[in-house]
Design a protein around this nucleic acid. Structure first.
Length: 426
RNA sequence: GGAGGAGUGGCAGAGCGGUUGAAUGCACUGGUCUUGAAAACCAGCAUAGGCGAGAGUCUAUCGGGGGUUCGAAUCCCUCCUCCUCCGCCA
């Protein structure tokens, strides 16, 4: 969430940001509401502190009086402090309520989009930052979509997944499973070479973690919830990996913090029935290698570019046609300031598939995470956090299968030969 | 799952109802000394919030939350985590 002081000092920017996200009318009032609550918080705090300070002072005097044996005087002061107790209780409970309201208000305000974020409502309005320069592969009418190829080469089985669990839980087998494993290793090795520390995190997280990276309360309905223990299945490795640094004050010279992790990701995808749900395009469980960086605020946009380059390098090694989009205000994630999406062209489906999302959250996440660093001025400041998929498996598999299908089988890109242990899936 | 023990500043570790936001040591930062370094010595060294132009000052925080009390790191309740033993088990 944003810091109240930031909102106070940059009210016009925040409002402009909300408008970029297509907020209008009454929805914009949240900003003033939050500022009013913060004013109340301050005045209540002052009032409470004044009484507490007086009480503390008297209590110390009482201690002194008892030592000196002046009981009667002490009793008098006791009564004086006691008479304030009701007021203190009242103010404390008011304070709790105000803080809760304030936090809830702040949770409703999304991150301020970077000026580069184009206006727009839906993914149709996303701006193509870098289009595919070459020709798109034309496989002709005989080209099979990946779900048919998967069946043909016995790579994955949706029916079995549905039998064991339910729709949207694919089961990979044989060469399909080896392809998955090879891709995971390839992505992790590339991240390792780029200086990311590998993390194998827990796959279930507690409420604090989910809240800190912003999945709660924003995406509550999208996560699987183990209610008995109140734990959430992670929708992305971003959650546990970023939370490594929750409540940590980082030494400035330890920047940049670079972490990567492979995990399965679990998403309920509530409300997205029908569209795009065929095959591996949208599933409840998929594997992903995520890269996360925690950096100095001045460096975060350079780092965003670095991460973009990393993802681009992966796609080049996989020899897949891709393009990069700048997400528009309407499509931009709640917590992000600037997001680039990578899309890969899927030749048989004749459409672009999103395979990576690289974002700079600036201080939006770190404010909740309380990830700070001590600056040269010896004060603590919020760090910037970024993350990106590098890459999401299921759709990469879809594109690899569709784009590389031949009479002899699926010809894998060179980079994967040693990882998958074969050159052609047949 | 059962029984017991413990959670204090970056770390170690005192304090166990009264000016203790917290002794001491280590680490760290600055200074003196030195050609330089080490050692020695001196000083500084938690986080968040309020008020203040600032110096500063007040408030809260000793795992989390609640309570008792004029006053709690210290007493009580509850939750969490860790350790030891028993049981079960990949």
């Amino acid at each position: 969430m944003l810091q109240v002081n930031f909102i106070r000092e940059n009210k016009e920017r925040v409002l402009a940001g909300l408008k970029t996200r297509n907020y209008a009318g009454a929805r914009l009032e949240i900003v003033d509401q939050v500022l009013a609550l913060d004013d109340r918080r301050k005045s209540t705090q002052t009032e409470l502190d004044t009484i507490l300070a007086a009480n503390n002072k008297l209590s110390k005097e009482i201690g002194g009086l008892y030592k000196a044996g002046k009981r009667t005087e002490a009793e008098g002061l006791k009564a004086q402090v006691e008479s304030q107790k009701g007021k203190v209780k009242e103010l404390e409970s008011a304070m709790r309520q105000i803080k809760e309201d304030l936090t809830n208000g702040l949770l409703e305000i999304p991150n301020v989009p970077n000026p580069k974020v184009p206006a727009g409502n839906t993914d149709e309005d996303n701006e193509v930052l870098q289009d595919w320069a070459g020709d798109l592969p034309d496989m002709g009418d005989k080209a099979q979509p990946h779900w048919e190829l998967g069946e043909k080469y016995n790579l994955f089985d949706f029916g079995l997944g549905a039998k064991i669990t339910g729709a949207g839980f694919p089961l990979f087998r044989g060469k399909g499973a080896r392809l998955q494993r090879g891709l995971i290793n390839f992505f992790l090795d590339e991240a390792h070479k780029a200086g990311y520390e590998e993390i194998i995190p827990p796959l279930l997280v507690n409420e604090d973690s989910a809240r800190a990276t912003g999945q709660l309360p924003d995406k509550e309905g999208q996560m699987y919830h183990a209610t008995k223990d109140n734990l959430y299945l992670i929708p992305t490795a971003e959650v546990p990996v970023t939370n490594v640094y929750r409540d940590v004050i980082i030494n400035e010279k330890d920047f940049p913090i670079k972490m990567t992790g492979h995990t399965p990701c679990f998403r309920r995808e509530a409300g997205s029935y029908g569209k795009d749900t065929k095959g591996l395009n949208r599933v409840h469980q998929f594997d992903k290698v995520e890269i996360v960086q925690i950096v100095h605020p001045e460096k975060s946009y350079d780092v965003l570019q670095e991460m973009l380059n990393h993802v681009e390098g992966l796609l080049q090694k996989l020899e897949l046609p891709y393009r990069i989009l700048t997400l528009c205000g309407g499509d931009l994630g709640f917590t992000s300031a600037l997001t680039y999406d990578f899309e890969v062209y899927s030749a048989a489906q004749k459409r672009w598939l999103e395979v990576s999302s690289v974002s700079n959250f600036e201080t939006y996440q770190s404010n909740r995470l309380k990830v700070r660093y001590k600056g040269a001025d010896k004060k603590t400041h919020l760090a910037h956090t970024l993350n990106g998929s590098a890459l999401a498996l299921a759709r990469i598999v879809a594109a690899l299968l569709e784009n590389n299908q031949t009479e002899e089988g699926i010809k894998l890109p060179k980079a994967l030969h040693s990882y998958v242990g074969m050159e052609v899936i047949c």
